[in-house]
């Protein structure tokens, strides 16, 4: 059973993610954010100074503040100038950042929000799924990736702050979001639109590889899985009903309700970005996921004893 201290965030830490951009779709926003935060602080200071003068200032200063002219300058002229500049900046940046149709040869990934995890499908040029995964996205450094965001149930919101602003995933719509990572690393994110139940525990990670490392990752995913040797864990998997919801390529397990587990052993996290992934946490999750993530769609498997859980966890951890 995992203890709570084993739960860990994929997102967070210092410096604040929004102010620590890692790609060209977040960097200009960070610049805007700094301008706004500093400019806002300056304006606040000016207003406070004006208030202080009004309350305690010298009579001559107060006279200058106390009339329609002060309102015209402070309340109308100054804001009009500043806001016009900001509006133009914001509009220009909006047009610049908004993702339009895929560019030729661009990597496309469809991410579907589900209660409460993320279904990930890597698409080819014609939009067919070539790799299935869940709760993490692998991208090569330095290339743009077009994300096609949709939802299987309620509204979710995809947000990896170090790479781009957020975009809602809405049933019946397909929203586009372009990202690019300029440095290798893992970038965390979390569902930003309240989606009921354990909305708080719906994390995501983007893993940016160097181009060579990404090609290796991709090749490993595309390689046909050798017909696996039957193990005790695999037998349990099939016998306990896991296959009704999960797919493991190369076996009879072809359920579609839950995350694809073909490569579950190589994922960074379990339970959608909330547990580190190892045999212990795998066993704990299977036995009692409802305590770790209350309300999630996977039932507890308390009927399995410790030996069985270990066998199952061994098997799953081995699916690299």
């Amino acid at each position: 059973m995992p203890t709570e201290t084993q739960l860990k965030a994929v997102l967070g830490g210092w410096p604040p993610a929004v102010l620590n951009p890692a790609g060209p779709y977040s960097e200009p926003v960070t610049l805007l954010a700094w301008a706004l935060l500093i400019g806002g602080t300056v304006v606040l200071a000016i207003v406070l100074a004006a208030l202080a003068v009004a309350l305690w200032g010298a009579p001559s200063l107060r006279r200058r503040l106390g009339g329609d002219r002060a309102i015209w300058i402070g309340g109308i002229a100054f804001p009009v100038v500043v806001l016009t500049a900001l509006l133009v900046w914001g509009l220009w940046l909006t047009g610049d950042l908004a993702a339009k149709a895929p560019r030729p040869g661009e990597m496309r990934v469809r991410i579907t929000g589900e209660m409460w995890w993320w279904r990930v499908a890597y698409l080819d040029e014609s939009g067919r799924t070539v790799i299935r995964d869940a709760n993490e996205l692998h991208v090569p450094v330095g290339s743009t990736v077009l994300l096609e965001l949709d939802s299987a149930d309620v509204i979710h919101s995809f947000w990896v702050p170090r790479l781009a602003g957020k975009m809602n995933m809405i049933p019946g719509r397909r929203n586009l979001l372009r990202i690019q990572a300029d440095q290798p690393g893992t970038f965390g994110g979390q569902c930003a639109e309240y989606c009921g139940g354990p909305h708080a525990l719906m994390g995501f990670a983007v893993v940016a590889h160097t181009p060579e490392s990404f090609d290796r990752w991709r090749a490993s995913r595309l390689a046909a899985r050798p017909a696996s040797v039957t193990s005790r864990g695999q037998e349990l998997f099939m016998a306990s009903g896991c296959a009704a919801c999960h797919t493991i390529a190369g076996t009879q397990a072809a359920g579609l309700a839950g995350p694809d587990l073909t490569h579950v052993g190589s994922r960074r996290t379990l339970g959608a970005g909330i547990l580190p992934n190892n045999r212990g946490t795998l066993a704990g999750w299977i036995a009692d996921s409802q305590t770790i993530k209350p309300g999630n769609r996977m039932p507890n498997y308390k009927q399995l004893d410790a030996r069985e859980l270990n066998a199952l966890a061994d098997y799953l951890a081995g699916l690299k």
């Binding site: 201290t5 965030a9 604040p16 993610a17 929004v18 102010l19 702050p161 909305h199 708080a200 909330i274």
Partner: peptide, 21 residues
């Protein structure tokens, strides 16, 4: 303001250790 800039979403009933929040 800061916890938001650090990535903390609204309407969460809890958050995980290590987030810095």
């Amino acid at each position: 303001h800061l916890s938001g800039l650090m990535g903390m979403p609204r309407r969460v009933y809890t958050y995980l250790p290590g987030s810095g929040w």
